[in-house]
C-alpha cells in the first residue's frame, strides 16, 4: 500500500470508530432526554441499581438465558443441517424446507411463546428453548441451504476425478466449503436467539434475564427493567464481540 493509501485507510478507520462512539452517545442522549420527563429512570440511577445487584443474583439468570438460547439455537442448527443435507439431494425435502421456512418466518416470537406456554405449561423449561429454535430456524435453514450449495464445482469435479462418492463429496468438499457461511449464519442466529429467548422467558419461565425483566415490570420497578435490559445488551454484545466475531473471522480464513 502507498503512503497516501495508508493515510486514507487510517482516516477511514478513525472516522469509522468515531461513528461507533457517536452512535453510543446518541442512544445515551435519547435515554437522558426520556428520563428528563420523569417517565424513565436516568442512566446514573440504573447503573447504581446494577451495581447494587449481587453477582449470585445475576449469574444464574444470565446462565439460564444463555442455556435457553444456545440449546434452542443448537436444535435449529441441527435441524437445518439435516434438512439442508437432504434438500441438497431430494427436491421433495427442498420444497418442504422452503415452505417450512416461509411459515416459521411469518410466525412471530410472541405467537410461538403463547402457543408453547399454553401447550406445555408455564413451569415447563421447554417453551423458551423451542421458541428460540422455531424463530431462528428459517434464518439458519436458508443460510445452511445456500451455504451447502456454495461449494466450488471445480473442487467437486477434482475429488470426483479421484473416485469420491457422493458422501465423500459432501463431507470432504461441500461441508468444509460452507464453514464460513455457516459461521456468519451462526453469529447472526445466536444473537437473534439471545434476544428471542428473553421474550419467551417473559411469558413462560421461572428464570432467565427475560423473566427478571418482566418480574421487575410487574413490580413497577423501572430501574430493574432497565438494569436487566442492560445485562441483556452486555450479554449480546459480549458474546458477539468476544466469541462469535473472532470465530467468524477465523472461519473466513478457512477457504483462503
Amino acid at each position: 500500500m502507498t503512503r497516501g493509501g495508508k493515510e486514507a485507510s487510517r482516516g477511514h478507520e478513525i472516522a469509522f470508530r468515531a461513528g461507533r462512539i457517536l452512535a453510543s452517545l446518541f442512544v445515551l442522549a435519547i435515554w437522558i432526554s426520556a428520563s428528563a420527563t420523569g417517565m424513565l429512570p436516568g442512566p446514573v440511577e440504573v447503573v447504581a441499581y446494577l451495581l447494587s445487584m449481587e453477582p449470585e443474583e445475576v449469574a444464574p439468570q444470565v446462565l439460564k438465558t444463555l442455556y435457553n438460547s444456545i440449546t434452542g439455537f443448537s436444535l435449529s442448527f441441527l435441524a437445518s443441517m439435516v434438512l439442508g443435507l437432504l434438500s441438497h439431494r431430494l427436491p421433495l425435502i427442498k420444497g418442504f424446507s422452503e415452505a417450512l421456512s416461509e411459515i416459521f418466518n411469518s410466525t412471530s416470537a410472541l405467537v410461538w411463546s403463547l402457543v408453547l406456554v399454553a401447550t406445555l405449561g408455564v413451569l415447563s423449561p421447554l417453551p423458551p428453548i423451542l421458541v428460540v429454535a422455531a424463530v431462528t430456524l428459517p434464518h439458519v435453514l436458508t443460510a445452511t441451504v445456500s451455504a451447502l450449495s456454495s461449494a466450488d464445482p471445480g473442487l467437486l469435479e477434482a475429488v470426483r476425478s479421484v473416485g469420491a462418492k457422493p458422501s465423500d463429496e459432501f463431507f470432504e468438499v461441500i461441508l468444509p466449503s460452507s464453514v464460513p457461511l455457516l459461521a456468519s449464519a451462526s453469529r447472526v442466529g445466536l444473537g437473534t436467539a439471545l434476544r428471542i429467548s428473553v421474550v419467551a422467558e417473559a411469558f413462560g419461565s421461572s428464570g432467565g434475564v427475560g423473566y427478571m425483566i418482566i418480574r421487575s415490570y410487574n413490580l413497577a420497578d423501572a430501574s430493574g427493567v432497565l438494569a436487566w435490559s442492560l445485562v441483556l445488551i452486555a450479554l449480546v454484545l459480549g458474546l458477539d464481540q468476544l466469541v462469535l466475531k473472532p470465530l467468524e473471522r477465523r472461519a473466513r480464513r478457512w477457504l483462503e
Binding site: G154, L155, A158, S161, E172, W254, E256
Partner: peptide, 8 residues
C-alpha cells in the same frame, strides 16, 4: 487440472 484444484 489447470487450476490445481487442491482442497484449501
Amino acid at each position: 487440472f489447470q487450476e490445481d484444484r487442491l482442497l484449501p
